[in-house]
């Protein structure tokens, strides 16, 4: 069972990333659940969501100890670093997060996601870069399911972005391997 916690600031595409993962899991006939965090404030501050991917029925609609944390900025890292399960994974956007972890029993994967996205010509696809890293590190879903899900989730007028998204995901995956 994968219990993923994705965290960043509003506008980094955290929610979309979570939805794509849940969608891809559903395509693979896994049990899935997407849990957004929602606050009184509609904008600003940290945005985070959880995704559970499982072969068995999902009980609790809550992720208190994620197996994987994807931290897109420093406040997210600070907030959730300690919650990660023992022997879990923290994937961090090293373009923005420069500090080291204080945890000893987790695996750290550093990805300069903002820089990679910039290099690809679109800063807004850092979520795709981190998504690529996530699936390469965890194998939680297949890249094919991700691409098929992206096509269904993105509105048709955004389909011109599909090749760029795919490249971001694949580049990130090759970096891990």
């Amino acid at each position: 069972m994968h219990e993923l916690l994705l965290a960043g600031f509003g506008g980094q595409g955290v929610m979309l990333m979570g939805k794509i993962l849940a969608y891809a899991g559903m395509k693979e006939e896994k049990q899935v659940m997407f849990i957004p965090s929602y606050g009184s404030e509609m904008r600003g501050g940290t945005a985070n969501c959880s995704v559970i991917l499982s072969e068995e029925e999902i009980d609790a609609p809550v992720v208190s100890k994620p197996t994987v944390l994807v931290a897109m900025n420093t406040p997210s890292f600070d907030k959730f670093e300690s919650s990660v399960k023992e022997n879990g994974i923290i994937i961090l956007n090293s373009s923005l997060i420069t500090k080291e972890t204080t945890r000893e029993n987790v695996k750290i994967v550093k990805v300069p996601a903002s820089d990679i996205a910039k290099g690809l010509g679109n800063e807004r696809i850092i979520n795709m870069v981190l998504l690529g890293t996530l699936i390469a590190v965890t194998n939680c879903v297949k890249v094919g399911s991700i691409m098929a899900s992206l096509k269904e989730i993105l509105p048709p007028h955004r389909h011109n972005l599909l090749p760029l998204n795919q490249k971001a995901i694949e580049d990130a995956m090759s970096l891990v391997k």
């Binding site: 559903m26 899935v32 997407f34 849990i35 957004p36 929602y38 999902i58 609609p61």
Partner: peptide, 9 residues
């Protein structure tokens, strides 16, 4: 709020 906000198939 949990039921209203979660997504499931």
């Amino acid at each position: 709020g949990i039921l209203a906000q979660i997504m499931e198939p």
